[in-house]
Design a protein around this nucleic acid. Sequence first.
DNA 1: ATCAATGCAAAGGTTTTGCAAAAAT
DNA 2: ATTTTTGCAAAACCTTTGCATTGAT
Lengths: 166, 166
Amino acid sequence: MDQSVFKQLLKEKNLKVTRQRMLVLELMGDHPGEHLTAEDIYELARKKDPEIGLATIYRTLQVLVELQVIDKINFDDGFVRYELGQMTGDDSEERRHHHHHAICSRCGAVYSFEEDLLDNLERSLLERLGFLVVDHEVKLFGYCKSCREKMKNEDLKLRRDLEVKV
Amino acid sequence: MDQSVFKQLLKEKNLKVTRQRMLVLELMGDHPGEHLTAEDIYELARKKDPEIGLATIYRTLQVLVELQVIDKINFDDGFVRYELGQMTGDDSEERRHHHHHAICSRCGAVYSFEEDLLDNLERSLLERLGFLVVDHEVKLFGYCKSCREKMKNEDLKLRRDLEVKV
DNA sequence: ATCAATGCAAAGGTTTTGCAAAAAT
DNA sequence: ATTTTTGCAAAACCTTTGCATTGAT
């Protein structure tokens, strides 16, 4: 997101352009694809502006979510997380890309990806229930490649140990 | 979920069968398809067992989640919610049904449904990343039928008012 | 000059934890 | 008899809020 575009967005909503708001935007831009907590962003921000307060971070994140500059995500680990929301190239409608995440249940790694395979489901909801889907969020839980390999090795080791004992 | 099956599950994990655990299971069974908070369950439980403590509710819910008897869901409204997780009839593998929710952004109504339209996506993740999906969670945000009708009426009213003024 | 935004500290609300007493195996 | 679980209260935790001060327009 361009700084000038952001300033414009703020002005449209009668919000002021402050040092702190620009800093948080900059930090989010410096960490694309990451899923930062408010605390993470606070720590990053303090390096550039030691006076900044945690409450300001929270308030700024709220503003950024309302302006649809960032997305709020929840991996149920006790923290709300934020990531820069990419707009689609779609010029006519300001449709937002959907945030899909695959979360490894063993190491916690998060893979982000985009794919619109829910169109059928959304169409059927509209037809059956009259429910119009505007946005969606998909979380896939499972095991990443390296954890699967580690688990396989542990399993082999376990079997060997058992064989020794048997 | 049958009581005896639950008792068996507890015993397998060396957990004790207590009055409180059986009560919470019973309450979840009495409210299928609902999305109860810990506080909701506490209030229901106190009607049948006024001595029960909130901490016990939280601890019991953790146990039920670990035993995969209930699912933990988060609608980002500040509460973690719980619902009875239905097992599929799939006898061979103890695969769980996936919990999909359509949440109305205007009135907060939640529609639950099942549909496995993510198979393609999951297959592609395995092929491309080596990520094995075990469970998934889908949240659709939008507007339900009655809210869409209300919004349409409000829109019409607004237009009429504008016409009068013009 | 006006009104919004900040920083600090305190409060808020949900969830977890420590510990002695009670209950389950 | 042993070990887990409970209930209570206190603590922990992330997040929000009140308010005087600072900063943006």
